[in-house]
Write a protein that binds this DNA or RNA. Structure first.
Length: 479
RNA sequence: CGGGGUGUAGCGCAGUUGGCAGCGCACCGCGUUUGGGACGCGGGGGCCGGCGGUUCAAGUCCGCCCACCCCGACCA
């Protein structure tokens, strides 16, 4: 059961987050430093995320497979940037069956290498391409500072790995999957995201180009919520993924990879959560409607429960995820707070007065207090609830989008940029040099988040050095 | 790995000049309650982070070690 009040977001955002994850029973700390236990409620949420994504992957022609957890250490060393990027965070297995291993194995930090190795075996002809595979699994990256869902040493994700005959096809795939992520984030999670390209310093180790969906959290920090990489021929060359084209000429394949992790749960928490707890978008919520029956004694109970059960069945049969909270050892008030902590989008109360008046009370989680509570007729309850859930989903997206937009700024000069990145994002022209990027980071702790894809080129000058620039970038502090 | 902090019941904490280890919440039992976190009565629960030292006596004083948290360097 959820316990007493949360630390408020304004008091200490970080404490608020940590307490919320524990009290909503999404996850718990494990005995292994930096690892987490995802509890049933958190995992149900993840399963709904998986289902929504998996459907989209299948619709775009991908199939699932699984590759090993352990990878020969030498594989990681085949791609120069890749090894440099990942070496510091590898977990390495040196002993197996009591014997020192001839070659150490690394616990996968990501699977480009082993999948590249397999693809080289499977790809001989242009007819073998494209290969469009996704894997659901876990990976391990030894992290210095961890935080549940946002950064843990082991995390759960999906990683898509594709190989193509042409550069153009691979580039299209990269952007197609970025679109899938953005569509998922916006329409399922109600998390407004900006699609963009990562700078050279921020990109994936081994990629030619990394793209991202960036979301703004409730404290205005940015969270990279999904990434899609164009890997060029880097991994194809490292693992000799070669094929004969139609002219019988040997070519290296072009590959992509893309991933979205349980970090998305952190994004949902920090995009929608409030001081009472979690607020979940109806489309992903493990429980969409919680029913709280109210009665003082057996007589009232015998009048209320048959009607409550009838409504429960109607909602259930309509395909809604509904739960009846029939606990008798806690008061209704306790239950309200309990389910608010867990972010259930809609609460349905039914008591003796409702039985008399043929009504029920509906309280929406995204609109706190009396304002979000309405009394409606029991007639047509399924349609009423469905409409409300749709409204909540749309309302959450609108609210989050308005919040983000009101915290994006267009600073006039460097001094103003330094100011605005303390309270939100700066969208500014940038010459795309590492020098200017690191100057901003050193003086503000804000990094480049992405160069938004949906922007029209405009003539401007770099906010740092003043050199000509055609594109704007987002600067912001990030998780 | 650098800087700061904290370790006492499941959680949050108190513990005075060294002298029987406590409080709130949670948990268990019984009864009364139940439309916004109910109440009464009765219970259970401790290697006081670890090791060593000082002392008649250490949660308390001293030394060493360990763990965790926060702020930095690294990241989906």
């Amino acid at each position: 059961m959820a316990e007493e009040k949360l630390t408020s977001r304004s008091e200490n955002y970080s404490d608020w987050y940590n307490e919320l994850v524990i009290k909503a029973e999404l996850a718990d700390y494990s005995p292994v430093r930096g690892c987490m236990v995802v509890r049933p409620y958190g995992w149900s949420l993840w399963e709904n995320i998986q289902a929504a994504l998996d459907r989209r992957f299948k619709e775009t022609g991908h199939t699932n497979a699984t590759f090993p957890l352990l990878i020969p250490k030498s594989f990681l060393e085949k791609e120069k940037e890749h090894v440099e990027g990942f070496s510091p965070e590898l977990a390495v297995v040196t002993i197996g069956g009591g014997e020192e291993l001839e070659e150490p194995l690394v616990v996968r930090p990501t699977s480009e290498t082993i999948i590249g190795y397999m693809y080289s075996k499977w790809v001989k002809s242009w007819r073998d391409l494209p290969i469009l595979i996704n894997q659901w699994g876990n990976v391990v990256r030894w992290e210095m500072r961890t935080k549940l869902f946002l950064r843990t040493s082991e995390f759960f994700w999906q990683e898509g790995h594709t190989a193509h005959a042409t550069e153009q096809e691979a580039r299209e795939e990269t952007l197609r999957m970025l679109d899938v992520y953005a569509d998922f984030a916006i329409n399922e999670a109600a998390v407004p995201v900006i699609k963009g390209v990562k700078s050279e310093t921020e990109k994936f180790a081994g990629a030619v180009m990394s793209t991202t969906i960036e979301a703004m959290m409730g404290d205005t920090k940015a969270l990279q919520s999904g990434t899609s990489h164009f890997l060029g021929q880097n991994f194809a060359k490292a693992f000799e993924i070669q094929f004969s084209d139609k002219n019988n000429e040997l070519q290296y394949a072009w590959t992509t990879s893309w991933g979205l992790s349980t970090r998305m749960i952190g994004a949902i928490i920090m995009t929608h959560g409030d001081d009472k707890g979690l607020v979940l978008p109806p489309r992903l919520a493990p429980i969409q409607v919680v029913m709280v029956p109210i009665y003082k004694n057996d007589e009232e109970k015998s009048k209320v429960m048959p009607i409550a059960d009838g409504i429960f069945s109607q909602l259930k049969n309509a395909g809604m995820r509904v739960k009846m909270d029939g606990r008798e050892e806690v008061t209704p008030g306790y239950k309200y707070n309990d389910w608010e902590m867990r972010g259930v989008p809609l609460r349905l109360e039914i008591g003796p007065k409702d039985v008399e008046k043929n009504s029920v009370a509906l309280a929406r989680r995204d609109v706190p207090g009396k304002e979000g509570k309405v009394f409606v007729s029991q007639e047509g309850i399924v349609a009423t609830v469905q409409t409300l859930l749709t409204d909540i989903q749309a309302g959450m997206l609108a609210k989050a989008t308005a919040f983000r937009d009101s915290n994006m700024f267009d600073p006039k000069d460097f001094n103003e940029l330094v100011e605005v990145v303390q309270k939100g994002w700066a969208v500014s022209h940038w010459c795309e040099s590492k020098e200017c990027e690191s100057k901003v980071k050193e003086s503000t702790k804000a990094s480049t988040r992405c160069i938004p894809l949906d922007q029209t080129e405009s003539q401007g000058s770099c906010i740092v050095c003043g050199k000509p620039s055609k594109r704007k970038v987002i600067f912001g502090k990030s998780y």
